[in-house]
Computed example of a mutant assay.
Amino acid sequence: MKKRIKKIAIIGFIIFLLMQCYQPARNIGYEQYFSSNFTEMYKVPKNVETSLRTSCYDCHSDNTDYPWYSYIQPIRFFMDGHINEGKKELNFNEFGNYSNRKQRSKLDAISKQIKSDEMPLSSYTLIHKNALLTVNQKEEIINWINTLNKNE
């Protein structure tokens, strides 16, 4: 019985090591200039932009700031899934490519999800404490979005 458990553990460890050889492309576009970027479309106050970049851009842009543990599989698979899903739902770098209607819809969704504490995800803020939005930051973002909606 002990030999069998030891054999399974060794095989599991070898599989884990082999998984580390697969390192998919990273979601990094630092060298690119995004003319359709959210901040190019709107005059975003610096404090709002900073909050959005800190709390949202890792999953909702083409510029993920990868932590050291992103090199470890299967953690990377999990992260890539979140990033791909997040970008599919909203990509700040592609915001200008959305129709006006979709832009307004996305802004409303941002506001609603921040109000209801759906975003940023708790699984993200568990490790990234700096991504937690304070009450003041939430109010600043929501108020700015409301101001945009009134002007349109």
Rank of each mutant, 00 (worst) to 15 (best):
Y22S: 06
F16N: 03
I8V: 10
E140I: 06
S61N: 02
K2A: 10
R4F: 02
Y124K: 09
H128P: 00
N100F: 14
Y22I: 14
R101N: 09
I15N: 00
I145R: 00
I15M: 05
K129Q: 13
I142A: 04
G12F: 10
L133I: 13
S55W: 02
G12H: 05
N149S: 08
E85Q: 15
M41L: 03
T64G: 04
Y33H: 12
I141N: 07
K7G: 03
K3Y: 12
K6T: 12
N151R: 11
S116G: 03
K7L: 08
W144N: 00
Y57E: 00
P45D: 04
R101G: 03
Y124G: 06
G29E: 05
N97R: 15
P120Q: 08
F77H: 10
Q20I: 12
M119Y: 02
N91T: 10
E89I: 08
Q73A: 10
A109P: 00
E49W: 05
Y33K: 11
K106N: 11
K102W: 06
N151M: 11
M41T: 09
S61T: 08
Y98A: 12
F34V: 04
W144V: 09
I72S: 03
E85Y: 13
I14H: 06
Q20H: 06
A9L: 11
P24D: 04
T50G: 05
I83K: 01
T125G: 12
K87Q: 13
I72Y: 11
Y98E: 14
P24V: 04
T64Y: 07
N100D: 15
S51L: 03
T50V: 13
L121F: 11
I83C: 05
T134I: 12
F13E: 07
I15V: 09
A25L: 12
N97L: 15
Y33P: 00
L18E: 01
I15P: 00
Q32D: 08
I145A: 01
E139A: 14
N84P: 00
I5W: 07
S51K: 00
N47K: 04
W144S: 00
R26P: 01
K6M: 12
E152R: 09
E118A: 14
Q73E: 14
F77L: 14
N63W: 01
I15D: 00
A109D: 10
N130H: 12
S123D: 09
K3A: 06
K46E: 11
K150P: 04
T125M: 07
R53H: 01
F34T: 04
Y42G: 09
W68V: 13
T39R: 05
M79E: 02
Q20M: 14
G12R: 07
I14E: 05
H128S: 07
S122M: 13
I28G: 00
Y42W: 11
K46Q: 06
V44L: 06
N149T: 13
Q103A: 03
K138V: 05
V44T: 13
G12V: 05
I5A: 05
T54P: 02
N27E: 08
K138R: 14
S99W: 12
C56H: 01
N93H: 13
V44M: 13
N143W: 07
D65W: 08
M119I: 15
L132Y: 03
V48N: 08
E139R: 15
